[in-house]
Design a protein around this nucleic acid. Structure first.
Ligand SMILES: [Mn+2]
Ligand SMILES: [Mn+2]
Ligand SMILES: [Mn+2]
Ligand SMILES: [Mn+2]
Lengths: 173, 173
DNA sequence: CTACTATTTTAGCCAAGGTTAACTTATTAG
DNA sequence: CTAATAAGTTAACCTTGGCTAAAATAGTAG
């Protein structure tokens, strides 16, 4: 009575297969977290994705301002690997969020808010990159992985990464 | 002649400020990577984002199949923290990619391809989660961070993470 | 000043991932 | 068997982040 149901995915089949009967010790370590906690994990990822690109943009603009004295959208486009039209639209969004300021056809600046976000992002990026290198990851790979991972490291993890890098640094001197 | 230009972002101002004059030793460590390499870093992140959700779905479906014997979209929705309508649409995409199969109004199954992706994703997820815990991150935080970071860890990094966890495990026995 | 080139913006397109509301189908209770 | 409930689908909408092609503006060279 169970097998054919499972094979077609008969929805009601679970009624006579109550949860509190499943052997507990068998899948304790591997068990699924409670539904609401699980949902909050995915929600955290979605929330990180919302700000991810904004953070990368302000970080890059800050870097360009610092290293080339100026942040032109053509350079942002080249470094991001997207078209100038895409940069134009994203910059419009950054402006509406008051992270970036600029006059039409002029290059880009950060607002106070933008500077603050850039500083935080830069610091976090540096911590993750340094950590990966301290771990033994090659520079090339570390740069790639850090660019994505940075947005998903909580403060607790960042603190631990920083401590690890520091200790590793002290150990090899 | 430089300051006013910089303040308004006058594009042409850089012509008489050639790059090869900037002091090299001052910003060597902090320097921006070459433009094309930098672009490839962001491209890698974008590429990871393309498959991220698909991976989480097939992984979750596999988990539900294993732990509850059945993967119903209402459970996927609850665990993902999204509406059933969203699940319905994403599942349509998974089906068009031949990762998932199901008949209308019936629950979900993985294809061969889907099983393979789920196995890889599960393994990678486990490596990252175990690594974070081995590092000293709390279980709660490790779960959240792993859910995002897993998609941005390259094979090289995964190998190193695994070695770290194994050594750390051996050390504390 | 005029032409040319570089840069930026705009318009129109698309896919992904989310929502709510209305509808259909399946399962269960009486 | 029928009514009620649970589950799944569909339609209509939204935002984000890509793209190309065309238009507008800025900077430079003659
Ligand atoms: Mn960054
Ligand atoms: Mn990044
Ligand atoms: Mn996962
Ligand atoms: Mn994930």
């Amino acid at each position: 009575m169970l097998l054919p149901y499972e094979q077609i995915g008969y929805i009601g089949a679970m009624t006579d297969f109550p949860n509190d009967v499943t052997p507990d010790r068998l899948c304790k370590a591997d068990a699924l977290p409670p539904s609401d906690q699980h949902a909050r994990q995915y929600a955290a990822v979605r929330s990180a994705h919302e700000t991810e690109l904004l953070e990368d943009y302000v970080e890059l603009i800050a870097d360009l301002l610092q290293h080339q004295g100026e942040a032109r959208s053509t350079d942002v486009a080249a470094r991001m690997g997207v078209s100038q039209a895409t940069v134009s639209k994203t910059v419009a969004r950054l402006k509406s969020l008051e992270l970036v300021s600029s006059k039409p056809y002029r290059s880009l600046f950060l607002t106070e808010k933008g500077e603050a976000m850039a500083a935080m992002s830069h610091q976090r990026h540096a911590i993750v990159l340094k950590f990966l290198r301290a771990l033994g990851v090659s520079d090339h790979t570390a740069r790639i992985d850090a660019e994505g991972m940075e947005h998903h490291a909580s403060q607790e993890t960042l603190d631990i990464m920083q401590r690890f890098s520091r200790e590793q640094e002290r150990g090899s001197s």
